[in-house]
Amino acid sequence: MNAQTIDYSKLQRQVDAHPYPLLFATISGAHLYGFPSADSDFDLRGVHLLPLEQVVGLDPGEETVEKEGIHDGLEMDLVTHDAKKFFTLMLRKNGYVLEQLLSPLVVHTTPEHEELKSIAQDCITRFHGHHYLGFAATQWKLFGKDDPPKVKPLLYVYRVLLTGIHLMRTGQVEANLLTLNQAAKLPYIDELVERKLAGAEKGTLDTADLTFHEREYVRLIGELESAMEKSTLPEQATGKAVLNDLLVRLRTERKE
């Protein structure tokens, strides 16, 4: 159902133009979630490494670099965080950064990226379920603002809920809705994706649809809460020491 081929060479040129060395750059957003439209922009996410003098000096460096626009005919949004900021987010109940780190859609990688992916397993906790509960509530509010309601934000609601349920049950981060639905077997997901890809004409819902999906939203919230209660994941991340060692090594040993 992928409606858009990824031209990695064009994305790589934008990564190459980044002002700081990158540990990785991956694709997030609709492409990662499994339902990009032909006109979907590319959400590039990653980690950069500030020079040592910008870390220890009086003038702070750019903890976050953001760049958006149309380049080589592709609309893209590039956001990267400095390693310290990103590592700190990894130690919190932030599933979003783990999805970026573990995205299979890789534009740029390094040996340190592979190290981070290994460390990520020690940063997953039962309390990441709260991240997905909050994220789902936010997406549901966005869905409810449209009149008539649109398919796209509804797909984001389901993606978030199924990712959270899967994480609580398996300890694995999976952000692709179509992959998640192989286990969840929600009969309406494929149709919703097809309607989203078909464009604006079929990308809205009627009142009967809205009532049904509201029941499903409440049901899946309950499933996520139940999965959290039953999860065998630890309550706290255990990867802090390893992340600290990696950060010190990156600051002191990595060559520009």
Rank of each mutant, 00 (worst) to 15 (best):
E68F: 14
E191S: 14
D146W: 06
E235H: 10
V107G: 01
Y20F: 12
N244P: 00
M90Y: 11
D190W: 08
E223G: 05
A137K: 04
Y96R: 11
H18C: 09
E62F: 09
Y217P: 00
L105M: 04
H213N: 04
L89I: 12
G239F: 11
E115T: 15
Q182F: 02
L205W: 04
G69D: 07
Y33M: 02
E201I: 14
A241C: 04
L102R: 00
S226V: 06
G73N: 11
F35Q: 01
L52P: 00
V79L: 13
I189N: 05
Q4K: 13
K185S: 14
F135G: 01
T232M: 09
G61D: 10
L50P: 02
I165T: 10
E114P: 01
T207D: 10
L161V: 01
K150V: 07
K230C: 05
E66A: 13
G171H: 07
F42G: 04
R13H: 12
M90I: 13
H213R: 07
A198N: 09
K150M: 04
E75M: 13
V107E: 03
K255S: 08
L74N: 06
V79W: 07
G95E: 06
L154G: 03
F135E: 00
K152E: 02
I165Y: 05
A183F: 10
Y20H: 10
Q100H: 07
D82H: 13
E66Q: 13
L50D: 05
F135R: 02
Q121A: 10
Y188E: 10
P104D: 04
L154F: 00
Q236I: 09
D147Q: 14
I124Q: 01
E253L: 12
T109Y: 01
H131S: 01
D41A: 08
L177M: 10
N94W: 06
R13T: 15
T163W: 01
T88D: 15
R251F: 14
V107F: 02
A38I: 14
E223F: 05
L178P: 00
L102N: 03
K196H: 10
T5D: 03
L105Q: 06
L101T: 13
W140I: 00
I124D: 00
V47S: 06
I124F: 03
I119Q: 05
V173M: 15
A183Y: 10
I124P: 03
N244Q: 15
D59E: 14
L89K: 13
G57N: 03
I221D: 00
K10M: 08
P19R: 12
F127K: 13
P21K: 08
I119Y: 15
L58S: 06
E62G: 08
P111D: 09
Q54V: 02
K117H: 02
V157F: 01
L210G: 02
H213A: 01
R219N: 07
A184P: 03
V248L: 12
V56I: 11
L243F: 12
Y217I: 04
D122P: 00
K255N: 07
P148S: 09
Y132G: 04
T211R: 12
A198Y: 09
H113V: 03
I189D: 03
Q12Y: 08
K202H: 06
A227I: 11
K196C: 14
S103R: 00
K196N: 15
G222E: 10
D7F: 07
R126H: 06
A83R: 08
Y33W: 13
L154I: 00
